[in-house]
Design a binder for these strands. Sequence first.
DNA 1: TACCCGTGGCG
DNA 2: TCGCCAAGGGT
Length: 382
Amino acid sequence: MTRKRSPSGGAVAGPVPDPDTVPQLLLRWYDRHARSLPWRAPPGSAPADPYAVWLSEIMLQQTTVTAVIPYFRTFLQRWPDVAALAAADRDEVLAAWAGLGYYSRARNLHLCAQQVAGLHGGRFPVDEAGLLALPGIGPYTAAAIAAIAFDRPAVVVDGNVERVVARLFAESDLLPAVKPRLRQRAAELTPQRRPGDFAQAMMDLGATVCTPRSPDCLLCPLSGQCGARAAGIAAELPRRAAKAAKPQRHGIAFWLRRPSDGAVLLERRPPKGLLGGMLGLPGTPWEDRRPWPLAEALAWQPAAADWVLLPGGIRHVFTHFALDLSVALADLPADEATLASAPPTGSLWLSPGRETWEQLPTVMRKAARFAHAADTAPASRR
DNA sequence: TACCCGTGGCG
DNA sequence: TCGCCAAGGGT
């Protein structure tokens, strides 16, 4: 047992993780406990298909394994290789991504497939620099693909690795300032042999044992090497800078029904920014100040009509704000023949139902379900 | 650099 | 009910 001094000055008792022992213990644990995942090759075997590795890594950015699995299966079945995905219609890719969030990932996924198919002959670059140059692939993903698909000793650092390393070395400085030091620590631990399995083992450990809230140190193969465990502060690391409070925003969405067939008007959102490129209900901007009076919201109505504001609404929390969204209902007036038959570019009429909801981002699914339920409610509704 | 960008599960 | 946060990237 050695003793060291933390950067903040406090004495920290405990072992110093050994850069040879840690990978050894971790890979032994991984050989027995690796999770079976649709995109993963078994421990010690030949690397998985780079296309599947790439697709899974993009989907897994800031997203849980549970959420990703059904989307991964759907994509792989529908577009089995990078050439198929490159040839796909962009809006169909976006529709298939709907519900998974962070929609710029889907736009970049399609772009990246087209670059790999067109510029690289359908093969992914095997080195980090080449991967990093592709859209949607940043430092983490480039390292992960290089290690997992191409067996390169890249240093793979995601949130799991940061947490595991912060605990192993009892790093008590705040994220994100301490990131460079954590990366250096991770580099010291990354082995030349089985780097892909090592990376996946670190992430599995972080996801199943060395968890954020209540790490299960009794099951951890590295507990004997862990500085935070020795100091009794594992659950408190890594420490993070405080986050800003989320503003509350308000908006009104318009549910415009075409009387001839019950279809509803939807709009293609602008290509960048929030929910970029996705379908949604037309509506007001989402503003901080207060709920919208219907009279003011009418400036954004898709057509002049006899709008009825529904009581209540839906609530949705985005990364950096919370939204209260109300819904106004109307039938398209009979004199709007042009809008009924030929909506402007970016607008379209779709029939209410599951096939339509599935193309929408979650906030719009909530609004559409809410509006549709009110619209088809029994006559007790006034 | 700091901010923007979704969603769902969990304690 | 609510805050936390996850296999981050782009700008």
